[in-house]
Computed example of a mutant assay.
Amino acid sequence: MITEKYQVKGMTCSHCVDAVSTEVRAIPGVSEVTVDLASGQVTVSSAEPLDVQVLRNAVDEAGYEVVTS
């Protein structure tokens, strides 16, 4: 199991958390998604390493943006 953390910009409410969680959870191989609204941090667990662009596309589909550090 691989767990990675990402910073997501633009989330302000529980609807945002639900939207991001739903889109990221739909990525093949993702087993768990945890979103911390206060920090904007999204923690993703998956069987294999995720393609970051696939994750970015999922978050974008939800209406938000992965912030690059």
Rank of each mutant, 00 (worst) to 15 (best):
S46E: 07
M11A: 09
V54F: 04
L55D: 08
T68M: 13
S45M: 05
A19D: 11
V59M: 06
A26L: 06
G10S: 09
S46L: 06
S31Q: 15
V44S: 03
V24Y: 05
Q41S: 03
P49H: 08
V54R: 11
Y64P: 10
I27W: 08
V52H: 11
V42H: 02
V8Q: 06
M1E: 03
T3Y: 05
E48C: 03
R56L: 01
P49M: 12
K5N: 11
D60A: 15
Q7P: 00
R56A: 08
L55N: 07
P49N: 11
T43P: 04
V52L: 11
S45N: 09
K5H: 08
E32C: 07
H15W: 08
A19F: 04
V67D: 00
Q41C: 00
K5S: 13
Q7L: 13
S69T: 07
Y6C: 10
Q53R: 14
Q53T: 10
I2A: 01
L50P: 13
P49L: 09
I2Q: 01
L55P: 03
V44D: 00
I2D: 00
G10F: 00
I2F: 02
V24E: 03
V30P: 07
A38R: 04
G10L: 03
I27M: 06
E4M: 14
A38I: 01
C16L: 06
V35W: 02
S31F: 08
G29H: 08
K5V: 11
D18K: 11
V54G: 01
G40H: 12
Y6H: 11
K5E: 13
D51L: 06
C16I: 02
V67Y: 01
G63I: 11
G40F: 10
V67W: 00
R25S: 15
V17L: 02
P28C: 09
V20D: 01
G40P: 10
V20K: 01
V44Q: 02
A19E: 09
V52S: 06
L37D: 07
A58Q: 12
C16Q: 03
M11S: 06
V8K: 00
E61S: 05
P28F: 05
A62P: 09
V59W: 01
R25E: 10
P49V: 11
S69N: 07
V66E: 09
V33L: 07
D51E: 13
G29T: 14
A19G: 09
S46A: 15
E48D: 14
E4F: 09
S21R: 04
Q41L: 07
G40I: 13
A62L: 08
V44A: 05
I2V: 05
M11Q: 09
D51G: 04
E61D: 07
S46I: 09
L37N: 05
G29Q: 14
A58H: 15
L50Y: 04
Q41A: 07
P28T: 13
R25Q: 13
V67C: 00
T22W: 03
E32R: 12
A38M: 05
G10C: 00
E32A: 15
A62H: 04
V33E: 10
M11E: 09
S45Y: 02
I27T: 05
A47I: 13
A47T: 15
D51A: 14
T12E: 14
V59I: 14
C13A: 06
V17F: 08
M11W: 04
E4H: 13
V17C: 03
E32I: 07
V24K: 04
C13R: 00
T34P: 00
T43D: 12
